[in-house]
Design a protein around this nucleic acid. Structure first.
Lengths: 208, 208
DNA sequence: AATGAACTCAAACAACCGCTTGAATTAATG
DNA sequence: CATTAATTCAAGCGGTTGTTTGAGTTCATT
């Protein structure tokens, strides 16, 4: 029982990759069993055989993509020094998304899928809630020294705004334009915007 | 020929409103002919009779919503004084979205539909390109005096980031949480973030 | 009252949906 | 070589999709 199982795993992976690609393009409701199997070069029955149902396949692909993204962001944030600047924090926060935009390929599909999940959350996403918490607390911890006058609730709000901004960039057609810019230019301008959103510009000027 | 035509217009409007509501909830691919007609209290054939097809109905509802939003934002921006602060510009820019979040109702459906259009653009959106240009040039004109060291391309980039941030807030589930906050708190925190994104936080500190 | 246009309706249409089935294929095991 | 289990396949299942059709209803006009 070797070659058969390897072949099975291969079609399993191909199905999951095809599902991810279509999920990134059109979201959960916009894909079809036949589309996936055609793209993967498999038979329609392979989905039921390997995953049980189309929904189970999509759930697994989404959760896999989401976990992959969260881990990369956690790693980027935890590699920051203890006295990092606002721009360094922003660069770490936006890093995975920027890298995906520059690399195109499968990473971009992962990012697009993650971003779509932010709009239409799947049902099992609570299973990854601790990783979200981990990211949030890390960002909060790094951000607090730079924004002493801002309470935690507002810092979380700004972090979610920054995350939403990034998700938008990879999802909207502007992302295609972005990918044409030199990577260093994307990096510079994006870090400036994200750091600016973190810092904010309150009406009552209580900044340092 | 009076009462009959009025009744016809009534079901036409009901269909368009139902389509808008479902478009806001689930996007272009996630709605069904029967769902729309059920919500509107009409027969399935009414769609073909009044609009020709489901797609034509959706296109009309989307374009109507988009035009309504663009006009409200143009009006908000043009009511700004000549020497408005960064926060006032941000408030005008985010105004329509904030108002919709506070009002709930049909305006929110318009905003959600507009935001979804930003991700999956309909084919006829070029017809409104001049209104997009109008908004962009107005924002640029207001923003330039505050950010003398930043070129137009980067200002446009920051504007699109700010727009994406707003779109994200009305689309993502965080929007539901936002609506629970006091309107003044939303206003204050959102203006701070948008103005912060406009201002940016470049690594080379060339701010005033 | 009769005509005719504007509109609505239940029923049906082909096409496609996700999913299942039983046979065929493949490769490890006795 | 015969057996057995894992995988693939074409074909078909009931159900739903968007759209069409022709009869029926409603109301202004004659």
């Amino acid at each position: 029982m070797d070659l058969r199982r390897e072949a099975g795993q291969r079609t399993r992976d191909a199905l999951q990759m095809a599902a991810l690609e279509l999920l990134a393009q059109r979201g959960q409701g916009g894909l079809t069993l036949r589309e996936i199997t055609d793209l993967a070069g498999a038979n329609v029955a392979a989905v039921s055989y390997h995953f049980g149902s189309l929904k189970a396949l999509c759930d697994e692909a989404i959760e896999h993509a989401l976990e992959r993204y969260l881990d990369s962001q956690i790693q980027a944030l935890s590699s920051l020094g203890p006295d990092s600047t606002l721009q360094e924090i922003a660069a770490a926060f936006a890093g995975p998304m920027m890298d995906a935009l520059a690399a195109r390929g499968q990473d971009l599909a992962v990012m697009r899928t993650v971003a779509r999940v932010g709009i239409d959350p799947p049902q099992g996403w609570e299973r990854l809630a601790d990783k979200f918490d981990q990211i949030r607390s890390q960002v909060l911890q790094r951000l607090t020294p730079h924004l002493t006058g801002v309470d935690d609730q507002e810092l979380i709000f700004r972090t979610r705004c920054a995350a939403g901004l990034l998700n938008w960039l990879v999802l909207a057609p502007i992302g295609a334009e972005l990918a044409l810019m030199p990577a260093e230019q994307i990096e510079r301008q994006l870090v400036a915007v994200v750091a600016g959103a973190f810092r904010g510009a309150p009406t009552v000027t209580d900044l340092d």
